[in-house]
């Protein structure tokens, strides 16, 4: 028999011969009976008018909804996008470290979240994470700063040269190229330098020049002299004195025929350049000439 012949039979698509063959088959009577009975089959009643009426009601309310919803849906999308943007920005910014920095001839004062104070000397950079401040008081420092630490958890200052940690005190940290000095003015400071920890009680200093730990003079004042606009040195190579001079006055220092390792003891003003130049040159027996943007130091006997 032909493929799907039952379907073709119902659709009157069988040829006479095929039909005759089908009629001879045993099952034909049954099929005919089924089709006969199915003639009187009816689907459940469907009220077209009611359906159309219900539909129009549904359509009206959906039309209203459409008009009302579309603009607000659009606005909601924009609002959602803006909210996400703000939230993301907020989290990004709050996860960034707080950073303060000073340029040459600049100085700034930073009050930390726990009311500890930091005075930042010229050409220095201080950063800390405000978000984590409650868990750990960690700062990183490049340059020089004076800390007045409020009592609390361990307070740590990380520098390239070493880390300094305290509980609550006043201390000065200077970390410059080749020069690292910590001075404790109050309380107790612990300095970790190259894996060795040293306790600095009040009134002591720790100094490293070019990797060598040197005996440091005990500070006489209750705060570093730079706080009072004076840079003070005790047996410090001239090289570092000139570096500090450059930082305080934002001026270029050149030297001619001068021993930069010569030790200098004294101080110079951070506010009066002529006075400062005299303070440096007179005890070291060198001469200087001040030009617009630079200072030349030269030996007295040099040409």
């Amino acid at each position: 028999m032909k493929e799907n012949y039952l379907a073709k039979w119902l659709n009157n698509e069988l040829s006479e011969q095929e039909l005759a063959e089908f009629k001879r088959s045993e099952a034909f009577a049954s099929y005919e009976k089924i089709i006969g009975a199915s003639e009187s089959l009816e689907a459940p009643t469907f009220d077209l008018e009611r359906a159309l009426h219900d539909f129009k009601k549904a359509r009206e309310s959906s039309d209203k909804k459409v008009v009302r919803l579309h603009p607000s849906r659009y606005l909601m999308r924009i609002a959602a996008a803006i909210t996400v943007l703000f939230a993301a920005t907020y989290f990004y910014i709050s996860s960034l470290d707080e950073t303060f920095s000073t340029d040459y001839a600049q100085r700034t004062e930073v009050v930390l979240p726990d009311a500890s104070e930091v005075l930042l000397n010229a050409d220095s950079k201080l950063s800390y994470s405000a978000r984590k401040w409650d868990e750990e008081r960690n700062l990183s420092l490049e340059g020089e700063a004076f800390f007045k630490v409020a009592k609390g958890k361990k307070f740590t200052v990380a520098t390239d040269a070493g880390t300094v940690s305290v509980l609550g005190t006043q201390f000065n940290v200077e970390s410059r190229k080749g020069f690292f000095e910590v001075t404790c003015f109050e309380g107790l400071v612990s300095v970790n330098f190259q894996g060795t920890e040293r306790k600095l009680p009040a009134g002591t200093s720790f100094m490293v020049i070019n990797g060598t730990v040197l005996p440091a003079e005990t500070p006489s004042a209750s705060e570093p002299s730079w706080i009072r606009n004076e840079s003070t040195f005790k047996s410090i190579p001239l090289l570092y004195v000139f570096d500090e001079f450059q930082r305080q006055y934002d001026i270029k220092v050149e030297t001619n025929n001068i021993d930069l390792q010569q030790l200098f003891t004294g101080s110079f003003s951070n506010t009066n350049i002529n006075l400062a130049l005299q303070s440096i040159s007179a005890p070291s027996q060198i001469k200087y000439s001040l030009e617009k943007n630079k200072v030349l130091f030269y030996a007295e006997n040099a040409p």
């Binding site: 493929e3 799907n4 039952l6 379907a7 073709k8 119902l10 099929y31 089924i34």
Partner: peptide, 8 residues
């Protein structure tokens, strides 16, 4: 057609 055939 196949479904119709199988149905019957």
């Amino acid at each position: 057609e196949k479904r119709m055939h199988l149905a019957l």
